[in-house]
Protein backbone atom coordinates (compact mmCIF):
# COMPACT_ATOMS: atom_id res chain seq x y z
CA UNK A 1 0.00 0.00 0.00
CA UNK A 2 2.70 2.42 1.09
CA UNK A 3 4.71 1.42 -1.91
CA UNK A 4 1.91 2.05 -4.38
CA UNK A 5 1.19 5.44 -2.77
CA UNK A 6 4.84 6.20 -3.25
CA UNK A 7 4.66 5.23 -6.89
CA UNK A 8 1.61 7.42 -7.49
CA UNK A 9 3.28 10.35 -5.80
CA UNK A 10 6.38 9.89 -7.92
CA UNK A 11 4.22 9.62 -11.02
CA UNK A 12 2.29 12.73 -10.03
CA UNK A 13 5.45 14.73 -9.37
CA UNK A 14 7.09 13.78 -12.64
CA UNK A 15 3.98 14.57 -14.64
CA UNK A 16 3.64 17.99 -12.97
CA UNK A 17 7.28 18.66 -13.78
CA UNK A 18 6.81 17.52 -17.35
CA UNK A 19 3.77 19.76 -17.65
CA UNK A 20 5.51 22.84 -16.24
CA UNK A 21 8.54 22.18 -18.43
CA UNK A 22 6.54 21.84 -21.60
CA UNK A 23 4.44 24.92 -20.86
CA UNK A 24 7.61 26.96 -20.47
CA UNK A 25 9.10 25.40 -23.56
CA UNK A 26 6.05 26.25 -25.65
CA UNK A 27 5.56 29.75 -24.22
CA UNK A 28 9.17 30.63 -25.03
CA UNK A 29 9.70 28.39 -28.04
CA UNK A 30 6.78 29.39 -30.26
CA UNK A 31 7.28 33.16 -29.86
CA UNK A 32 10.98 32.67 -30.57
CA UNK A 33 10.15 31.00 -33.88
CA UNK A 34 7.73 33.79 -34.74
CA UNK A 35 10.33 36.33 -33.70
CA UNK A 36 12.96 34.85 -35.99
CA UNK A 37 10.79 34.49 -39.09
CA UNK A 38 8.85 37.71 -38.56
CA UNK A 39 10.72 39.87 -41.14
CA UNK A 40 10.03 37.22 -43.79
CA UNK A 41 6.30 37.41 -43.04
CA UNK A 42 6.13 41.19 -42.87
CA UNK A 43 7.95 42.03 -46.09
CA UNK A 44 5.73 44.56 -47.84
CA UNK A 45 4.89 44.90 -51.48
CA UNK A 46 5.30 48.36 -52.91
CA UNK A 47 3.88 49.65 -56.09
CA UNK A 48 4.48 53.03 -57.70
CA UNK A 49 4.46 54.97 -60.95
CA UNK A 50 7.89 56.51 -61.50
CA UNK A 51 8.14 59.64 -63.66
CA UNK A 52 10.83 59.10 -66.26
CA UNK A 53 10.84 62.49 -67.97
CA UNK A 54 9.36 63.75 -71.25
CA UNK A 55 8.69 61.01 -73.76
CA UNK A 56 10.04 63.22 -76.56
CA UNK A 57 13.52 63.12 -75.10
CA UNK A 58 13.82 59.39 -75.76
CA UNK A 59 15.21 58.77 -79.27
CA UNK A 60 13.25 56.65 -81.69
CA UNK A 61 14.32 53.03 -82.03
CA UNK A 62 17.34 53.28 -79.72
CA UNK A 63 17.10 51.77 -76.24
CA UNK A 64 18.02 54.53 -73.82
CA UNK A 65 19.08 53.94 -70.28
CA UNK A 66 17.18 55.53 -67.40
CA UNK A 67 17.98 55.08 -63.71
CA UNK A 68 16.08 55.89 -60.57
CA UNK A 69 16.08 54.88 -56.95
CA UNK A 70 13.40 53.64 -54.59
CA UNK A 71 13.54 53.73 -50.83
CA UNK A 72 12.23 50.93 -48.70
CA UNK A 73 12.21 50.51 -44.96
CA UNK A 74 13.80 47.29 -43.78
CA UNK A 75 13.56 47.05 -40.02
CA UNK A 76 15.31 50.11 -38.60
CA UNK A 77 16.89 51.15 -41.84
CA UNK A 78 15.93 52.87 -45.05
CA UNK A 79 17.36 50.92 -47.93
CA UNK A 80 17.85 52.69 -51.24
CA UNK A 81 17.51 50.39 -54.24
CA UNK A 82 18.81 51.55 -57.59
CA UNK A 83 16.94 50.60 -60.72
CA UNK A 84 18.18 50.90 -64.22
CA UNK A 85 15.94 50.36 -67.21
CA UNK A 86 16.13 50.68 -70.99
CA UNK A 87 13.38 52.69 -72.64
CA UNK A 88 12.65 51.86 -76.26
CA UNK A 89 10.32 54.16 -78.19
CA UNK A 90 9.15 53.32 -81.68
CA UNK A 91 7.78 55.52 -84.43
CA UNK A 92 4.17 55.10 -83.33
CA UNK A 93 5.12 56.27 -79.83
CA UNK A 94 4.73 52.75 -78.45
CA UNK A 95 7.08 52.37 -75.50
CA UNK A 96 8.75 49.29 -74.12
CA UNK A 97 10.63 49.46 -70.84
CA UNK A 98 13.13 46.67 -70.16
CA UNK A 99 14.76 45.85 -66.89
CA UNK A 100 18.55 45.81 -67.25
CA UNK A 101 18.78 42.79 -64.95
CA UNK A 102 19.79 39.65 -66.79
CA UNK A 103 17.23 36.90 -66.30
CA UNK A 104 20.03 34.38 -65.86
CA UNK A 105 21.79 35.32 -62.63
CA UNK A 106 21.03 38.98 -62.10
CA UNK A 107 24.02 40.73 -63.66
CA UNK A 108 23.42 44.04 -65.45
CA UNK A 109 23.08 43.93 -69.22
CA UNK A 110 24.11 46.83 -71.41
CA UNK A 111 23.01 47.79 -74.88
CA UNK A 112 25.61 47.66 -77.59
CA UNK A 113 24.81 49.83 -80.58
CA UNK A 114 27.12 47.99 -82.97
CA UNK A 115 25.29 44.67 -82.71
CA UNK A 116 21.93 46.11 -81.62
CA UNK A 117 21.95 43.68 -78.72
CA UNK A 118 21.86 43.76 -74.94
CA UNK A 119 24.91 41.85 -73.72
CA UNK A 120 25.40 40.45 -70.26
CA UNK A 121 29.07 40.54 -69.23
CA UNK A 122 28.81 37.62 -66.80
CA UNK A 123 28.06 34.65 -69.07
CA UNK A 124 28.03 36.34 -72.45
CA UNK A 125 24.26 36.26 -72.88
CA UNK A 126 22.83 38.19 -75.83
CA UNK A 127 19.31 39.62 -76.01
CA UNK A 128 17.86 41.27 -79.10
CA UNK A 129 16.53 44.82 -79.13
CA UNK A 130 13.10 43.60 -78.04
CA UNK A 131 14.48 41.66 -75.11
CA UNK A 132 14.29 38.16 -76.59
CA UNK A 133 17.11 35.70 -75.93
CA UNK A 134 19.51 35.38 -78.86
CA UNK A 135 22.20 33.23 -77.33
CA UNK A 136 23.60 32.22 -73.97
CA UNK A 137 22.13 30.71 -70.82
CA UNK A 138 19.17 33.01 -69.89
CA UNK A 139 15.92 31.06 -69.42
CA UNK A 140 13.59 33.83 -70.61
CA UNK A 141 13.52 37.26 -72.24
CA UNK A 142 14.37 40.46 -70.34
CA UNK A 143 11.65 41.53 -67.89
CA UNK A 144 9.45 44.41 -68.96
CA UNK A 145 7.88 47.16 -66.90
CA UNK A 146 4.40 48.42 -67.55
CA UNK A 147 4.44 52.03 -68.73
CA UNK A 148 2.07 54.82 -69.68
CA UNK A 149 2.28 58.32 -71.02
CA UNK A 150 0.72 61.02 -68.93
CA UNK A 151 0.72 64.58 -70.32
CA UNK A 152 3.74 63.78 -72.44
CA UNK A 153 5.58 62.36 -69.47
CA UNK A 154 6.64 58.75 -69.45
CA UNK A 155 5.61 56.86 -66.30
CA UNK A 156 7.03 53.48 -65.32
CA UNK A 157 5.13 51.10 -63.08
CA UNK A 158 7.44 49.52 -60.51
CA UNK A 159 6.34 46.70 -58.26
CA UNK A 160 8.73 45.61 -55.54
CA UNK A 161 7.84 42.38 -53.86
Amino acid sequence: MARSANVTRRGFITSVMAFAGSVMGVVVGLPVIGYLISPALNAKKSDAWIPAGKLDTYPLGVPTSFSFTRTQVNGWEKTVNSFSVYVLRDASNQVKVFSSICTHLGCRVSFHKSSEEYICPCHDAHFNINGGVVSGPPPRPLNQYESKVDNGNLMIHVIEA
Binding site: V32, S38, L41
Partner: peptide
Protein backbone atom coordinates in the same frame (compact mmCIF):
# COMPACT_ATOMS: atom_id res chain seq x y z
CA UNK B 1 21.13 40.06 -30.46
CA UNK B 2 19.51 38.85 -33.69
CA UNK B 3 18.14 42.36 -34.32
CA UNK B 4 20.11 44.60 -31.97
CA UNK B 5 22.88 46.81 -33.38
CA UNK B 6 25.44 48.21 -30.91
CA UNK B 7 25.96 51.62 -32.47
CA UNK B 8 24.79 55.01 -31.16
CA UNK B 9 23.04 55.71 -34.46
CA UNK B 10 21.11 52.49 -34.66
CA UNK B 11 20.88 50.93 -31.19
CA UNK B 12 17.75 52.87 -30.26
CA UNK B 13 16.09 52.34 -33.63
CA UNK B 14 16.85 48.63 -33.62
CA UNK B 15 15.23 48.26 -30.20
CA UNK B 16 12.19 50.23 -31.37
CA UNK B 17 12.04 47.74 -34.22
CA UNK B 18 12.25 44.81 -31.80
CA UNK B 19 9.46 46.30 -29.70
CA UNK B 20 7.11 47.26 -32.53
CA UNK B 21 8.21 45.66 -35.76
CA UNK B 22 9.08 42.07 -34.87
CA UNK B 23 6.52 39.51 -33.76
CA UNK B 24 6.84 38.84 -30.01
CA UNK B 25 9.81 41.19 -29.73
CA UNK B 26 8.07 42.92 -26.82
CA UNK B 27 7.78 39.55 -25.05
CA UNK B 28 11.42 38.59 -25.56
Amino acid sequence: SVYYVPSPDKAYDSIQYIMNGVAFGWLI
